[in-house]
Computed example of a mutant assay.
Amino acid sequence: MIPDNQVPLTDSHRYQPISNISTQYQKKYFCKEEIPGLVNEFVKHSNKYLNNLIETKNNLTFILTIEIFLPSKQLISTESEVGRWIIRYRSNDFPLVTRHSIFVRSSERQTPDYRDECLNEWRNNWDRVKKLLDNASDIEVFEHLKQLDDDEWSGIVKNFSALGQTQNIKIGFMISCLIPESKQEDLFNALDNAAVPIALWTRYDTTNLDHSDRIRRIDDLLKSCPLRYLPKYIHEQQSRNYTTGKKI
């Protein structure tokens, strides 16, 4: 979202989707190795901009949340793990996730065609989630994908909207198997095309865990807090573990 500084802070029309005004900006291309440095500069400029914006407002503070858009095939890859990108803060280096909340999304969602075709479906599917936001959840409200080594899983994802019409309404997918690199891009494209609000999977190699243990860990995560606060809880866990070099 891009702010229009001529519109008051309290006006809901102050921010526009970047896809609506992208023609005003010239695209620039960078190597993957350059991106962490660019993010570091973005954080500096954003902090300066926000501090100046609230300078005349007494007792106001801000929380900088960063959205990163990546191609689908890079969303699972630990090689492009955004949380570990290093930023400079007061002469010290920190993993990005220890200083800011981060949301990583697929860049395919930025295309105008995707918005036109999927926006209404996204709203319908998120309506299911809103009914459960203030409840601690469990795996029963997620459709379970146990394997991705056949063609059945893609058909199940494509029919996600139909799962909202059943007696046991599903709000997303739980993927308890390891996701082969060859299937990663196909999986994310399928989730995007079906407008799936929530998908859960293990990000790291968990071959040392049996299948039931992976399911138990996801279930424990869901029961840890109301669904509304799950992203914040995961961010806090990641921040705590990244400072010690652990992975979750």
Rank of each mutant, 00 (worst) to 15 (best):
M1C: 04
M1T: 07
D4L: 14
D4T: 09
N5W: 07
V7M: 09
P8K: 15
S12I: 06
S12A: 13
H13E: 07
S19R: 15
N20L: 14
Q24M: 12
Q24I: 04
Q24G: 03
Q24E: 14
Y25C: 03
Y29V: 01
F30V: 08
F42S: 08
H45G: 00
Y49T: 02
F62R: 11
I63H: 11
L64K: 08
E67A: 11
L70M: 06
S72W: 01
Q74N: 11
I76Y: 09
I76V: 09
I76Q: 10
G83I: 00
G83H: 06
I87W: 00
R88W: 00
Y89Q: 15
S91M: 05
D93T: 05
P95L: 02
R99F: 10
H100Y: 07
R105G: 03
Q110K: 01
D116T: 13
E117A: 06
C118V: 14
E121P: 05
R123Y: 00
W126I: 13
D127L: 10
R128Y: 15
K131P: 13
A136S: 14
A136L: 13
S137L: 13
D138M: 11
F142K: 02
E143R: 07
E143Q: 11
H144K: 07
L145Y: 02
L148V: 04
D149A: 02
D150Q: 10
D151K: 05
D151M: 08
S154Q: 15
S154I: 15
S154Y: 06
S161A: 14
Q165H: 05
Q167S: 15
I169P: 10
G172P: 05
G172N: 08
G172W: 07
F173P: 00
F173Q: 00
E181A: 03
K183A: 01
K183H: 01
Q184R: 14
E185Q: 14
D192K: 07
A194S: 11
T202S: 11
R203H: 03
D205T: 01
T207L: 00
L209H: 02
R216L: 13
L227V: 08
P231Y: 02
K232V: 06
Y233C: 05
Y233L: 12
R240F: 10
Y242K: 02
Y242W: 09
T243V: 08
G245L: 09
K246E: 13
K246P: 02
I248G: 08
